[in-house]
Design a protein around this nucleic acid. Structure first.
Length: 111
DNA sequence: AGCCTGACCTAGG
DNA sequence: TCCTAGGCCAGGC
């Protein structure tokens, strides 16, 4: 990962690489970028991800137990779940089913 | 400039 | 096992 990119850019680069139908977590992204305690900042990056050029699949990022904590920040609540379900992911009570099986580890798969 | 907040997470008591 | 504090980066006031 080039070091001239700031943290947000790196977050977006990683997020764009999440395959459809898979999910990852805020913490995993932060950890992968060398700041294991910056999970919160990753959340903030997602919050303004719509300002980025290109499509940032923010709906594929959930919290560490597979909960859709960011759903209220989409155009309408429920959109996050709809996007996930359109990729074949089952969501029950705001939680990704088979989260462990669908988890995509950015560090492991990256570049 | 300083303080508060937030789509988080981990460690320690 | 629950609760707390601390760390991360930005933005709003």
């Amino acid at each position: 990962m080039p070091d001239h990119m700031d943290f947000f850019d790196q977050v977006y680069e990683v997020t764009k690489r999440i395959p459809p139908g898979r999910v990852t977590t805020y913490g995993a992204i932060a950890s992968c970028l060398g700041s294991p305690q910056a999970a919160r900042t990753v959340g903030w990056a997602m919050n303004v991800s719509h300002l980025q050029p290109g499509f940032v699949p923010a709906h594929r990022v959930v919290n560490r137990i597979g909960l859709l904590t960011g759903k209220h920040h989409f155009r309408h609540p429920g959109l996050m779940q709809e996007l996930l379900e359109s990729e074949g992911i089952i969501v029950i009570d705001d939680r990704v089913r088979d989260f462990a099986g669908l988890f995509w580890d950015p560090c492991k798969e990256l570049i």
